[in-house]
Structures are given as C-alpha cells and as structure tokens.
C-alpha cells in the first residue's frame, strides 16, 4: 500500500508517516518512508511517502498512491497527481495562506482546490485543526488525519497496530491527547460515511 502525506513544513507530516510505517512493521511487514527534511521545512511544501508493499525505492510513482492524506487543501491539490485514479483522500480543510498570496503575487482559492480534489478522487474533507484543538493541541492534526484514514476503511492496518505504533512514536505525556485526536478523526469520517 502506498500513502502520500502532504502538508506545510512544521505540521508534523514526518511523525504521521513514521506511525503508519511502524504499524506495518508491527504487523510483520516491511515498510519504507521518504521524507522532506531541510530548507523546505521552513513553511514550504513538504511530502512524506509511506510504502508498505515491499518496494525497493521510498518514493511513490505518479499515479501510484492508494491514499492521499493532506494537512492542507492547497498541498492536497498540488500532490493529487500521485493519487491513483479513483484513489481515496482525507483532506484537512484548514488552510495556510502562503506569503506569496498575502503579497498578492499568487491567488489562493481553497474552495476551488477542494472541489478539484473532490472531482478527482474519493475524498473526505474534515476540519482537522478544530478536532485537534478540541483534543488538546493543534499539534495533533497528524493523529486526527491518521484517524480519518482509518475511518475511511482504506488502511491495511489494524487499529491495535496503529495504537501500538502511536505509543512507541509519541512522547508518553502527549499520547492521551493524540489518541483522543485519532478517535475524533475516526468518528468524524464514520459519521460522514453514514450520512452519505
């Protein structure tokens, strides 16, 4: 399974990828991730690739991802080419306006971008920032989105493996709030699915 995680530097995409990859290892499989670390981390575009299917290279080909998790609408749209046709996506609706937009150098139309994602994938849109804050910290957006992915029923990972992986990769003092964030993501998506 190939998962592409997109976001803005500083949002915590790397931890999300590690949690997913390690959950696969717990289930006895081999996993790889490919990260963006360095200059782009300063508020630039970041992506993490997670591959659990025994690939040799860490980077997902264009049109190869089974799932797109995006921490931000524009970054979801920017990376949609990685998604398989008809692939699933979980998108955080909370936008981060780039400085280029504030300066009037490029336009940012979040609604248009989300519409484009919706037209080209099976996507759910959730306000992960709000759910993370309600769980105790804005930093838990990654756990909300992992929850959303699980709620979508697309992950080939059990809830128990994810829980164990979160326990291993998150500092004990932040674990409870991240577990709450995870469950809020699961619940949000499951409620959306029943409504549909």
């Amino acid at each position: 399974m190939d998962i592409l995680i997109a976001g803005v530097g500083g949002q915590g995409t790397i931890l999300a990828s590690k949690i997913l990859a390690y959950a696969a290892v717990i289930e006895g499989r081999k996993a790889r991730t490919g990260e963006t670390i360095g200059m782009s981390q300063r508020g630039g575009c970041v992506v993490s690739h997670v591959r659990t299917g025994g690939s040799h290279s860490p980077y997902i080909p264009v049109g190869g991802a089974d799932l797109l998790l995006s921490f931000e609408p524009c970054e979801g749209a920017r990376n949609i080419a990685y998604l398989k046709k008809g692939g699933k996506a979980a998108i955080n609706t909370a936008s981060i306006t780039p400085v280029s937009t504030a300066l009037g150098l490029s336009a940012y139309d979040g609604d248009k971008m989300m519409k484009y994602i919706a037209e080209n994938s099976k996507a759910v849109f959730i306000d992960a920032n709000k759910l993370a804050k309600e769980s105790g910290s804005i930093k838990a957006v990654n756990s909300v989105l992992i929850g959303a992915a699980f709620g979508l029923g697309v992950l080939d990972l059990s809830e128990e493996s994810l829980r164990q992986s979160m326990k291993k990769n998150i500092k004990p003092s932040f674990l409870d709030l991240n577990m709450r964030a995870f469950h809020s993501g699961v619940k949000e998506v499951e409620e959306m699915r029943t409504k549909c």
Binding site: V62, Y82, L83, T101, A107, N120, S121
Partner: peptide, 13 residues
Amino acid sequence: SIGTEGIELPLRS
C-alpha cells in the same frame, strides 16, 4: 494520471 493543469496553485516557497 490526475493532472494539476486544471487548477491554479499558489507558490509556497
């Protein structure tokens, strides 16, 4: 594959 030609994406340096 799903292109991004149909959508305007802002620069995020």
